[in-house]
Simulated assay, not measured.
Amino acid sequence: MKNIATIFPMSIFFLSCSTSKMHLEANIDLNANNNSAIPIDIIFIYEEKILDEFKKMPASTWFLKKDQYTNDYAVNNLIQVVSYEIVPGQHFAVSDFKPDKTPLITILYANYLNTNDNRIILSDYSNIRLKMKESSFLLSQ
């Protein structure tokens, strides 16, 4: 009976630390992004000291400096990056990623061919539904 008492508290700890899988679904208009593919990056941020930097960053900056941010932050486990490329006129759905741990925030960047911010701060990464329009995108129900 002593062994069961030792294992039980550890089981509770591991269950409480689990993260849910990310589900991303997007409907893409035919004329989205001038009928060009749209790269999308989802950034899971784990470090409080870099939150403001990412919250204010437009997508154009992220994609321009993505390699450097990955070198600076991802290799040190301060962020985790998931990348997709979606094509206009398609319905896109994926549920293949689970963050290593619970992020402080999750930010989605879309690399449109314009100078808009193209950024959404997500309150819940487990069920992301997007409507990709001609020159912008939004969360949909």
Rank of each mutant, 00 (worst) to 15 (best):
M1R: 05
K2I: 08
I4T: 07
I7S: 02
S11F: 15
S16K: 14
C17I: 12
T19F: 09
T19A: 04
S20T: 09
M22V: 10
M22W: 00
M22K: 05
H23E: 00
L24I: 11
E25R: 08
A26T: 00
A26C: 03
A32Y: 10
S36M: 13
S36V: 04
I42G: 08
I43P: 07
F44E: 10
I45W: 08
I45P: 00
Y46A: 05
E47Q: 14
I50V: 08
I50R: 11
E53I: 11
E53Y: 15
K55W: 12
K56P: 12
P58K: 14
T61I: 12
F63K: 00
L64P: 01
Y69P: 00
T70K: 15
N71E: 13
N71C: 04
D72S: 12
Y73I: 11
Y73Q: 11
A74F: 13
V75Y: 15
N77E: 11
Q80R: 06
Q80E: 14
I86W: 04
I86C: 05
V87W: 15
G89W: 09
G89Y: 11
G89H: 11
Q90L: 12
H91T: 11
H91F: 13
A93D: 01
A93S: 05
A93N: 01
A93W: 09
A93R: 04
D96Y: 10
K98E: 06
P99Q: 06
K101Q: 14
K101N: 13
I105R: 07
T106L: 02
I107C: 01
Y109I: 08
Y109M: 10
A110Y: 04
N111P: 01
N111Y: 07
Y112K: 04
N114S: 02
N114Y: 03
T115Y: 07
N116D: 09
D117L: 10
D117F: 13
I121D: 00
L122A: 03
L122G: 03
S126I: 01
S126L: 06
I128G: 06
L130P: 09
L130E: 01
M132Q: 03
S135R: 13
S135F: 10
S136H: 06
L138A: 06
L139F: 05
S140Q: 08
S140V: 07
